[in-house]
Design a protein around this nucleic acid. Structure first.
Lengths: 127, 127
DNA sequence: AAACTACATTCCGATACCGGAATACTGTTC
DNA sequence: GAACAGTATTCCGGTATCGGAATGTAGTTT
């Protein structure tokens, strides 16, 4: 993974918000939609951009697709460093804090553990 | 200074190389040219890009223009964090290390202290 | 003031990115 | 299998960026 490619992923505000949320753990697309309040196509395309460059992974689970940061052990050093830096920087900014607050208010009906156990399937995810 | 604007400055390889060099101290344009081996217009435009966004400062000194990172005390937190992160990341990459090695080999005839004292004026800068 | 050095800007074509509308795809429910 | 939910992709216009050639500008030397 080239350093400049990491920065290319970080140079869009929507992607920064997505990654900021992912620092809390895996999430499905509808969570991003409901937290960011942006249209589905926009979210999906930016997630695709990040995935194509290895900054996130995706796995399908029923109707939903769960996005996550790569496992910590497999993260290149530059990515670790920049994610840590990003977390520091977002911690003090209103928009990012607001996103995290909204995330906590979701019931996370399709959070990975619950999806795996079958809870929430077909019941809708984020209302 | 917005976080995303910092990343927009970091998402080009030439600009990463320029900033990596500036972490060592102020430099004039001809130093960048001779270290990077890139045409003048390319260097100048990227420095202009960084200057327009506040990541570097420029002051003229005779024929030369000296570029520098903003004074440490005036650097926004996000910039400090990202410059530190950048320095960590470049420290282990061949191209960036090679640039630093080349920089050390220059006699720095127009280095700020020497320019201020009049040494080097008109004698050419980087040959 | 003419010639020169160092640097910036303008003009141009090529490419990448961004956002939205519409459509396609995948898996589930009835 | 038809309808549905969640997600991805394609098509499109607008805009930003990038690099190079040519030209412009500021300051210096002679």
């Amino acid at each position: 993974m080239k350093l400049v490619e990491i920065y290319q992923c970080l140079c869009d505000e929507t992607r920064l918000r997505l990654l900021n949320l992912l620092l809390q753990g895996p999430l499905c697309v509808c969570h991003f939609q409901s937290v960011l309040g942006e249209p589905q196509v926009k979210i999906s395309k930016h997630l695709g951009y990040l995935k194509a460059r290895g900054l996130v992974t995706a796995k399908r689970s029923g109707n939903w697709v769960i996005y996550a940061l790569p496992a910590e052990r497999t993260r290149p050093v530059e990515l670790k460093a920049n994610l840590a830096c990003l977390q520091d920087c977002t911690a003090t900014h209103a928009m990012f804090k607001r996103d995290l607050a909204r995330l906590k208010k979701l019931d996370l009906a399709c959070a990975p553990a619950q999806v795996a156990s079958g809870i929430g399937k077909g019941k809708g995810c984020c209302g």
